[in-house]
Design a protein around this nucleic acid. Structure first.
Lengths: 191, 191
DNA sequence: CCTACCGATCGGTAGG
DNA sequence: CCTACCGATCGGTAGG
């Protein structure tokens, strides 16, 4: 699979695993170093600070979501189909990068003040675009006349939660997961 | 409102606010002490440890959920109505105790090893009871034939997320919130 | 990439 | 409820 990973990439990958398990603040650089197989001090030859690791994870994830939503918006499909595409995007992101998605979702609060503001701005922009999709669906008569905020956050939460319990070893395949989620959500939304 | 709150209750209440904002691990006892209006050392006249505060919050919340679900199970109503009751329970718990519910949901990982196991056991028991409700609904032909796990976690996640964005100051009342959530979820579930 | 080590801060205690 | 303080651990640096 992954062929030529830099030490920095390995550090960030291992960090995501530990951060997901116990949280960013509760994880020490010494513990991370042990996992990577070096002394804590040696980590700093590859990364600038503990902060930096969190930043890399959070913004990598955020940027991936943002870049994918553009292509969904640009299709000429129905809003219900765009909703389907969005559900699929989230399921696949979580399956592809479960640890990093989890850390971004749970530990962005621990970003430095300026980075935290930036993160919130990006996330708000993303949410706004989904809200517009929902609004368009309602106006087109495709969706029920729901409060847009409630619909938006019910949708996002249903998608976010996957990261907290879905493990490939479970009794359900990614395809089944996508299908059942779509059934539940689309029937909830559809008029 | 609250008339005779002990110092311990005040400490726990303030702790829940800070823990929600920055997370348990990132909150220091000195910061908590300042909020309560005393020195850090003085906190220990009212509480045994930082751990204890987290335990009190997590298990208070967990026990409240568990105690309420019994009365929902015991009614002779349809499964769809029980689902409605469950949605209402979660909305009201979040509105009544937003900070403590949030901390229980986000920071239980920071409980001591034994307490964490206990918490997980309680939570699994709770989830099992909701899963049984969903199964009963499917068998009775009231709900769609969905994968029970997907239905369970989509439901729980939709309910959990409220805590992360709902503020009473928002443009939507608790009643509207309950109604729209029910519309979305019931239509997703209902056959 | 390691040894050695820094200042800061942590949760918590002693003693009043 | 405070002053004074503890040992432990934290993120991070110097120097090789």
């Amino acid at each position: 699979m992954a062929k030529k990973q830099s030490k920095k990439e390995i550090i960030i990958q291992e960090a995501a695993i530990i951060f997901k398990q116990k949280g960013y603040a509760a994880t020490s650089m010494r513990e991370l170093a042990e996992k990577v197989g070096m002394e804590a001090a040696s980590l700093y030859n590859h990364i600038r600070s503990k902060d930096e690791i969190l930043e890399e994870i959070c913004f990598k994830v955020a940027n991936q979501y943002v870049s994918h939503i553009s292509s969904i918006e640009d299709t000429k499909e129905s809003n219900i189909q765009k909703l389907r595409d969005l559900i699929q995007l989230h399921v696949r992101m979580i399956i592809a990068d479960p640890n990093e998605v989890s850390v971004a979702n749970n530990d962005w609060k621990n970003l430095s003040e300026t980075k935290k503001e930036l993160y919130k701005t990006i996330r708000k922009g993303y949410e706004k675009r989904i809200a517009n999709l929902i609004k368009a669906g309602i106006e087109a008569g495709e969706f029920k006349d729901l409060n847009v905020s409630v619909a938006l956050f019910t949708l996002l939460s249903s998608l976010r939660w996957i990261e907290l319990w879905y493990k490939p070893g479970r009794d359900i395949s990614p395809e089944q997961l996508e299908n059942d989620l779509m059934t539940l959500l689309i029937n909830g939304f559809q008029k």
